[in-house]
Computed example of a mutant assay.
Amino acid sequence: MRESSWGAKVFNAANHILLLIVGIVTILPFLYVISGSLVSSEELLVKKIVLVPTNISWEAYRFIFASKIIYQSLLSTLFITVVGTFINLLLTTLMAYPLAKKTLRGRSKIMLLIVFTMLFNGGMIPTFLIVKSMGMLDTYWSLWIPSAISAFNLILLRNFFQQLPEGLEESAKIDGCNELRTLFSIVVPLSLPAMATFTLFYAVGHWNSFFSAILYINDSNMWPIQVWLRQIVMLSSGGFTDANALSEVVVPPESIKYAVIVVAAVPVLILYPFLQKHFAKGVLLGSVKG
């Protein structure tokens, strides 16, 4: 017993040290970015690496939020994220639920086609031509429809539905529920951990939407926040000029880059704690069965 107890103590101590090291390695980049966004230009010239700024300066954030365009792009991104996530969850759920039923004819062939899309796709130019031919250029539909269903998330949600007791659906049918009512009244409420997980996946994807917006949206008034943040970085580096876009404030380009990272990441960091308790559970439950 003593040897086992001693070994357990050594093992726990080693785990704590390892987790502490991993935690420090994980936190340091965030601390460096936040400090870099708050450092003054004088201190940045003296010190190349700043973890705790001596004098806090908000000039980088004032530079970013100097124009009303930023606030407009934030509202556009919020709209894109909320509506796009709703479309993703709705279509993914409506497709995953019937595929979870063993009685569905041709289920294996449909799943084969879904897996095929994970390995191969038409490419950027054919996708652009399809979006253009459907009249979705310069509309938010171009950001929603091409990525409406993620094959990976669909497979996980289908596996999650397969693990639910069949007796629940049979009881619902006896009570007179049709398939849609059974799905939204019984199956979906029981699948909240999985739904929370995919909500986070889809929402982060829409919030970080950049390349699709560059391809399909030419109207600058409709640009999401990520595109405008890129323009700000280019402006601070001298690669983009727009006299009406931002105020003429002298700010170190490095500080602006770090502030852009903070602005882009904070909303996701705020959302994550509310879904974190469901996150691991949802992914694990959906990945056990094939």
Rank of each mutant, 00 (worst) to 15 (best):
G167K: 14
L168M: 15
K173M: 13
K173F: 15
K173D: 09
I174W: 13
G176S: 08
E179N: 09
E179M: 12
E179K: 10
L180F: 15
R181E: 15
L183C: 11
L183Q: 10
V188H: 04
L190P: 01
L192Q: 08
P193S: 07
P193G: 12
P193Y: 01
A194C: 07
M195G: 05
M195S: 08
T197F: 07
T197H: 10
T197Q: 07
T199A: 01
Y202G: 06
W207A: 07
N208H: 11
N208A: 11
S209D: 13
F210Q: 03
F211T: 01
I214L: 13
D219S: 14
D219T: 10
M222S: 13
M222R: 08
M222Y: 00
W223A: 04
I225N: 01
I225Y: 00
W228S: 11
R230M: 08
I232E: 01
L235D: 13
S237Q: 07
G239D: 08
G239C: 08
T241V: 11
D242L: 08
A243I: 11
N244Q: 14
N244G: 06
N244C: 05
A245D: 06
L246F: 02
E248Q: 11
V249E: 08
P252Y: 02
E254D: 06
V263A: 02
V266Q: 02
V266W: 02
V266F: 04
P267G: 01
L269P: 01
L269Y: 08
P273Q: 08
F274S: 03
K277A: 03
F279K: 03
A280T: 14
K281V: 03
K281L: 15
G282L: 07
L284S: 13
L285K: 12
S287V: 04
S287Q: 12
S287A: 15
V288W: 00
V288M: 04
